[in-house]
Amino acid sequence: MKLRIYRYNPDTDAAPYMQDYELEFAAHDAMLLDALMLLRQQDDSIGFRKSCREGVCGSDAMNINGRNGLACITPLSSLKQPIELRPLPGLPVIRDLIVDMTQFFKQYHSIKPYLVNNDPPPETERLQSPAERSELDGLYECILCGCCSTSCPSFWWNPDKFVGPAGLLQAYRFIADTRDQATSERLDNLEDPYRLFRCHTIMNCVDVCPKELNPTEAIGKIKDMMVKRVV
């Protein structure tokens, strides 16, 4: 099995370079992360993040053969060789496949990703009907791996001003929540030529999302609610 991996250690390398690897690995049902773990026994200097190794934590997002995805749930059998691995595009590289996600999380925090409800806390839960709860399907599953935002040219260009698909999907997750009381403030927060309207609906986010979510649809629903508010 052949792999080409982006290598960069800012302490020792003047510039990033691609390193070729050969790996003896025959398991037909293995995932890319399994190959990377085995490869690390060959060369323990390769830097990448991983944690749950089953598509729940979102740590091992990387650019796989030109497409963002999670190494742990990408079957090796689906990949053309040599498998080219690069860090997520558009974010500063810390080392090899590890990127600095600070800007990504800054945008996430800017949409207040928590329930705003000023009523006194009830004795038990804040209840929802099954129908109300189902409005959160396709939104709450996001694991914040960053695959979508780092495949979005608008986010590459304005990462400090455009919230990005991941942040906007989460913004809609709280707008759609019947227990939240800050809908109007949330819409005000996004009514901005940069924060929301840099999305030009090219749908790279939908194409790469490893959880098969649809940030573009969520962004469309935010715009629909804004229209509903003014007409």
Binding site: E191, D192, P193, Y194, R195, K223, V227
Partner: peptide, 14 residues
Amino acid sequence: RVVTGAHYGLRDWL
């Protein structure tokens, strides 16, 4: 400093 929050955009989009 980076500043956003111009509170327009919807009308132009529409």
